[in-house]
């Protein structure tokens, strides 16, 4: 797939977590506007390999907006200038030929850089491990409608469950706060009957883990909601606040 877009890329290069990084500039030519942003990186990496240079490390997996791996901070926005998409869903037609594009890794003390654009997001896994699960045996799949769940609750739970754990909310937040992510994970369980058994301890434990990982405190700027590729709503953060304070005053632990 050849095209006629020529771009200048300023990409963050960093050997590993213990070294200092810096920006490298690359001229990328012959890019098609139908390519995704990651495919443009594939082209660049192929050229780097052919030239005997180290390719740029970046995370990716599904390339269809469901795995949440493709973390790139593009021209000052997580996942680039378009709203509601991941980097893999971002097309080169969103840019102008001749443009300079700056690509940085997610920046947060809780997301240390592993290499180049790859960051370690295992802090998210530990928040989930702290309480984002149900430990009752739910058995086989239920017959449809065996569990009465109001439509609104099901809708809200599904909307929260759309979170792919990409970390764009943290990357966008001036406080590097993980509240949108954590609240989505708390919400999807607290809205459904299966999540009730551990509802009280869940909010307390997940919030404590979120703080321990070194994420900041939310100041309600709304940057996370604006940048989230799955358009997770700020209502989830309010719900988390209710869940948390409700748990604090009523849990016995």
């Amino acid at each position: 797939m050849e095209g006629n877009m020529n771009l200048t890329l300023k990409v963050w290069r960093q050997k590993n977590a213990n070294t200092e990084g810096n920006f490298e500039t690359y001229d990328v030519t012959g890019i098609s506007e139908d390519m995704s942003f990651l495919e443009m990186f594939d082209v660049l990496n192929e050229r780097l390999i052919n030239d005997g240079k180290e390719p740029i490390a970046f995370d990716h997996d599904c390339r269809e907006g469901i795995c949440g791996m493709c973390s790139m901070y593009i021209n000052g926005s997580p996942h680039g200038p378009k709203r509601g998409v991941t980097t893999c869903q971002l097309h080169m037609r969103s840019f102008q030929s001749g443009e300079t594009i700056t690509v940085e890794p997610w920046r947060a003390s809780a997301f240390p850089v592993v290499k180049d654009l790859v960051v370690n997001r295992s802090s998210f896994d530990r928040i989930i491990a702290a309480g984002g699960f149900v430990s009752v045996n739910t058995g086989n799949a239920q017959d449809a409608n065996a569990l009465p769940i109001p439509k609104e609750n099901a809708d809200d739970a599904f909307a929260a469950a759309a979170c792919i754990g990409c970390g764009a909310c943290v990357a966008a937040c001036k406080n590097a706060s993980a509240m949108l992510f954590t609240s989505a994970k708390i919400s999807q369980l607290s809205l459904l009957p299966q999540g009730q058994a551990e509802r009280l301890i869940r909010a307390e434990k997940m919030v404590a883990q979120m703080d321990a990982e070194g994420f900041g405190a939310c100041t309600n700027t709304g940057a996370c909601e604006a940048e989230c590729p799955k358009e997770i709503s700020l209502e989830n953060i309010a719900r988390m606040n209710r869940e948390y304070f409700g748990a604090v005053v009523s849990s016995k632990g």
Partner: peptide, 15 residues
């Protein structure tokens, strides 16, 4: 203190 390394470019349209 939560973002020790700052971004080089920050778009300010999200808030």
């Amino acid at each position: 203190k939560k973002r020790p390394v700052k971004y080089a470019v920050v778009s300010k349209t999200n808030s």
